[in-house]
Amino acid sequence: MNATPHQLHYRELADDEKALVELARQIIEATTDAPDGGDGVHTMGAAVLAANGTMHAGVNFYHFTGGPCAELVAFGAARAAGAVDPQVVVAVGNEGRGIKNPCGRCRQVMADNYPQLRVIVDTPNGPRSVSARELLPLSFDWAAEQA
């Protein structure tokens, strides 16, 4: 069976990555404002693992004009706490919806700002991590355009 280049770089989760998933799950379950089976403003949680081993969490802030996704809020929380080198990120849906793969905007932000970042994604083989750049193949290179 031939594997695509992206499959070659998926890796199983390490213990600290499993803990990151659990933190994201706990933060959204504790803070969601959605009624059972309903929708709300805060329905996604995210967590970031920094190079120094600290973990930082955030939740989305939905608005029809495009409020920030949970991953972006978690990056901001990490930075506010002094973590300048995020290594891994994950997003988890409320009501036990599990790991949610990042939207296109988040993929572009991650690839532009944190090329070293690994992103925990849901795959047919279960949770895996992959580099942010691999999530956005042949993407626009914002940094190169600034030169």
Rank of each mutant, 00 (worst) to 15 (best):
N2I: 11
P5R: 13
H6P: 00
Q7P: 00
Q7L: 14
H9P: 01
Y10K: 06
R11Y: 02
A14P: 02
A14N: 07
D16A: 07
E17V: 09
K18N: 08
V21D: 11
E22A: 14
L23D: 04
E29T: 10
T31V: 05
A34W: 05
G37M: 11
G37D: 06
H42K: 11
T43M: 13
T43G: 11
G45N: 08
A47L: 03
A47V: 01
V48C: 10
L49C: 06
L49K: 04
A50H: 14
G53V: 05
T54D: 13
G58N: 10
V59F: 01
H63N: 08
F64Q: 04
F64S: 11
G67C: 09
P68H: 04
E71H: 00
E71I: 07
L72G: 02
A74L: 12
A74R: 13
F75G: 02
G76R: 13
R79L: 09
A80N: 09
P86F: 10
P86G: 00
V88N: 03
V89L: 13
V92Y: 14
N94K: 12
R97K: 15
R97V: 09
G98I: 11
K100S: 02
K100I: 14
N101C: 04
C103V: 11
R105D: 05
R105A: 07
V109G: 01
Y114Q: 03
P115H: 07
V119D: 01
I120E: 00
N125Q: 15
R128A: 09
S129M: 10
A132C: 06
R133M: 12
R133N: 10
P137I: 10
L138N: 14
L138V: 12
L138R: 15
F140A: 11
D141L: 05
A143K: 15
A143S: 05
A144F: 01
